[in-house]
């Protein structure tokens, strides 16, 4: 395993995440896609830390921060989804059309 394969993996994950976030119509699906994007960043950080900058631990530290922030983000997101589901009985974004965007 070298740096190239890690970066390729993370780029692939990131692009899958972007594609999913833009095309999914179920909110839970979009949330999962966004998690993929966050985790792509984490793989990048760990790989760069190991191969390019092995002297420090900044990359790993940052990855830990991103993991916990992503978790907090999902908590807030799911509670918002719960609130809107109680009012509308749907998790499909195309049904949220009260506000004309």
């Amino acid at each position: 395993m070298n740096l190239g394969s890690y970066v390729a993996l993370s780029a692939a994950l990131f692009l899958i995440g972007v594609f999913g976030a833009l095309t999914r119509r179920n909110i839970i699906g979009i949330l999962m896609a966004i998690e993929l994007m966050f985790n792509a960043a984490n793989i990048n950080l760990a790989a760069f830390n190991r191969y390019l900058h092995p002297g420090g631990i900044i990359g790993q530290t940052l990855a830990l921060f991103i993991i916990s922030i992503a978790a907090a983000e999902v908590v807030v997101g799911l509670s918002l989804v719960l609130a809107i589901y109680r009012n509308t009985d749907t998790v499909y974004v195309e049904d949220y059309n009260l506000l004309k965007g």
């Binding site: 991103i66 918002l80 989804v81 965007g101």
Partner: peptide, 25 residues
């Protein structure tokens, strides 16, 4: 309306912060 606005805000926000995290990496 408040629900809907906040969910749209959240989806955009989480998406762009994920992009930013990748940028930082």
């Amino acid at each position: 309306k408040s629900n809907e606005g906040s969910v749209k805000y959240f989806l955009f926000g989480a998406f762009s912060s994920a992009i930013m995290a990748y940028g930082i990496s």
